[in-house]
Design a protein around this nucleic acid. Structure first.
Length: 683
DNA sequence: CTTGGGAATTTTTTT
DNA sequence: AATTCCCAAG
């Protein structure tokens, strides 16, 4: 290990607070000792270069990784030498904020975020090594599907198109193949046998898709990972510069990394081997995205020197909740089973509630929330979880009826709404005119312009070195006749204006307002019924974008930081008493509430019906249930409706097999009935 | 060629 | 139940 690094003056980091290194160290250790238990302290202060922290739910995982960063800083490690990879950008912000509190090191000085975010940072610098230009555009899933659709149509596939996989499916195959390291052939045989006969054709379409992205300077989400890895493995100079910089690599939620991410960590740490990894294999719930919990289970194979730490004290939940959680995981192989020790005092058993239908279930949740509030549990301490977004409908209704403020995590993302994407597309074209997805979206808004005209325009414009100039100047509008021509001319005029504004230093919000004023407003008016609402959204977008000076930084933020939802964007802040959280279980990862409702515990929903035939997917559903249950500190309610009302028939539900597998002693069983005006009643 | 409407298909979780 | 696909009228 490089001696030089070890000797760096400790005062550098802590200058603001305490001048001498030793004083810093002992002060820091005091803080640590008060804040951490023995196991946590051992992990945080280890001298081993490579460490794996296996941390059960609620055992202080986040705390450990946060304090580890603070500890390293106190040891004299420069903030710039630390890399913190987390599962969401929000998580990174929270951790680094905490680090700032502990050490006074501003969070901005440490590189932290998702692998996508980190990859993006360096690709802006090194993308040209891969044949991309550095001002590439990031496309989201929808855009990617659009592009794949185009490529698929163009491909010389002679089969009756119906039997050939859809664009969506092609993307999924491609993505899984990359992220799991399986060849397309293998993947098709094992996961999509019905398409195995199209191997060659599928391969060709996917290759065309990859080439097209490169040609148009577009990167999809997977590219941010794979291209970054390619920089690290194929370009020694760049790799040296990057990995030389990050002397300490820390990874949170390691159980949800995929092969590409694991290889990235490996490449980053190849020289110094200083890796600090935290995770819990029992909480691996992202295999549909290529995540592989073998990464964490086999960590010591990949890193033979790794020192293993286990955190087994659970600070979060009551013994009753933990007992139930342990029952869920009863089946996992012994070597990986964790013994979680509860330190909280005993309380009520978790409840299982049988409701008549989804409405009554929602009503029950609403009333129970009210009585929890009576007991003194504030609304932000209550979480309502479900398997998929659609399950939130009845809950929203019941909560609003009861006058309970709530916020929804996930759901339709603000920027994924059609009208917002429309307006953003104008800016995307401005930033990267070769972005054919955005460009055709814009063209498509012109009246009397359809796919044929768009194709003709592209044919003329795309080969040019500056497609947008070509479009504006060379009369691409002339390619259409009549009304189509008129609207294209209006569009060209708008782009002329935007381009000029941009040269004069206009920011994203100016551009957005201009687009809306000159062009989009009219489109909005004739296309949508709820004109006013959507118009309001766009004003919100303009306001939101004021934070960004450059077009590129705004577009990147929009593409990568999709965290905020429609509800969130409009949440009037500072509601005096806060809000109840509604969330999918996936999005609840890493969070906790005093009281947790897990709703729709119906076989076919949790576990989801699509998973029933595949044992490994079924196990993942079980882990999902485990994650849901372990979010609860004190009160846990598991509920399911007995009937599902579709429009024309009534279905009887089976309770989730996960419920049926639990021993009856683990919970209290209730049948919820609303006979008069309120209340569930005992069995 | 565009557009709108009716038919067919698909259905989870997210960066 | 909602999105995507296809076809036929204008």
């Amino acid at each position: 290990m490089p001696k030089e690094f070890e000797k760096r003056p400790k005062s550098l980091v802590m200058k603001a607070k305490r001048p001498t290194g030793d004083a810093v160290k002992s002060a820091q250790l005091n803080i640590l000792e008060g804040a951490l238990n023995e196991q946590q302290l051992a992990a945080v202060t280890t001298d081993e270069p490579c460490a794996l922290v296996l941390a059960g739910a609620g055992s202080g995982k986040t705390r450990v990784i946060t304090y580890r960063v603070a500890y390293l800083l106190a040891q004299g490690v420069r903030p710039g030498n630390i890399l913190l990879a987390t599962f969401t950008n929000k998580a990174a912000r929270m951790m680094l904020h905490r680090v700032e509190d502990l050490t006074n090191v501003p969070q901005k000085r440490i590189v932290g975020g998702t692998f996508h975010h980190i990859g993006h940072i360096f690709l802006r610098k090194y993308a040209d090594l891969l044949g991309y230009s550095r001002d590439f555009t990031i496309i989201d899933e929808q855009d990617a599907r659009q592009l794949m659709k185009v490529v698929r149509k163009e491909a010389p596939v002679n089969f009756t198109q119906k039997l050939f996989p859809s664009a969506r499916l092609l993307l999924k195959m491609h993505s899984l193949s990359i992220n799991t390291g399986q060849s397309l052939d293998e993947l098709l045989v094992y996961r999509f046998p019905q398409f195995a006969r199209f191997i060659d054709e599928i391969g060709r379409v996917i290759t065309a898709y990859i080439e097209r992205k490169l040609k148009r300077n577009l990167m999809d989400f997977d590219d941010l990972l794979t291209c970054f890895l390619r920089v690290l493995t194929e370009h020694a100079d760049a790799a040296q510069a990057i990995s030389g910089r990050f002397q300490h690599v820390l990874v949170d939620e390691y159980q949800d990394t995929n092969l590409v991410q694991a290889q990235t960590i490996k490449a980053l740490s190849a020289e110094h081997g200083r890796v600090f990894v935290v995770g819990d294999d029992a909480q691996s719930i992202y295999s549909f995205r290529g995540a592989n919990f073998e990464n964490i289970r086999n960590f010591t194979d990949d890193y033979p020197n790794a020192k293993l730490f286990k955190l087994e004290t659970n600070y979060r939940s009551t013994p009753q909740i933990l007992e139930l959680a342990n029952e869920i995981m009863r089946g996992v192989p012994e070597e990986f089973r964790k013994l979680l020790r509860a330190v909280r005092s005993p309380a009520e058993r978790p409840s299982v509630l049988v409701c008549h239908d989804a409405e009554e279930q929602a009503q029950f949740v609403a009333e129970q929330v009210l009585s929890l509030r009576e007991e003194g549990i504030p609304l932000p301490e209550i979480g309502v979880l479900y398997r998929n977004h659609r399950n939130s409908l009845e809950l929203e209704l019941a909560l609003s009826r009861a006058g309970i403020p709530y916020e929804i995590r996930g759901g339709l993302r603000f920027i994924e709404q059609a009208h917002v994407k429309d307006v953003v597309a104008f800016l995307s074209v401005l930033a990267n005119p070769r972005d054919e997805v955005a460009f055709s979206r814009v063209l498509d808004m012109c009246e009397q312009v359809g796919s044929k005209t768009i194709a003709r325009i592209f044919e003329k414009v795309m080969p040019a070195s500056e497609p947008l100039k070509e479009f504006i100047k060379d009369g691409a509008p002339a390619l259409a006749r009549g009304a189509g021509r008129k609207s294209l001319e209006a569009l060209a005029e708008l782009f002329r204006k935007l381009d000029a504004m941009r040269k004069e230093g206009a920011g994203p919000s100016d551009l957005i307002r201009q687009v809306v004023e000159d062009f989009y407003d009219a489109h909005l008016l004739r296309t949508y019924e709820n004109y006013a609402e959507r118009r309001e959204d766009l004003e919100q977008l303009a306001i939101y974008s004021q934070k960004y000076r450059s077009l590129r930084s705004f577009l990147t933020e929009v593409a990568l930081n999709q965290g905020f939802t429609v509800a969130e964007a409009f949440a009037e802040d500072a509601a005096e008493e806060g809000r109840v959280s509604l969330s999918t279980i996936h999005q609840a990862k890493g969070l906790e509430w005093s009281a947790v409702f897990v709703t729709q515990m119906v076989d076919g929903n949790l576990p989801h019906r699509m998973c029933l035939n595949d044992p490994s997917q079924l196990e993942e559903e079980r882990r999902l249930f485990y994650v849901a249950v372990t979010r609860a500190q004190r009160h846990l309610y598991l509920s399911y409706p007995q009937n599902t009302d579709t429009r024309d028939y009534l279905a009887f539900n089976r309770p989730s097999r996960f419920l049926q597998e639990l021993p009856h002693t683990a919970y209290a069983h209730f049948v919820v009935e609303f006979s008069e005006d309120d209340g569930g009643s005992g069995d």
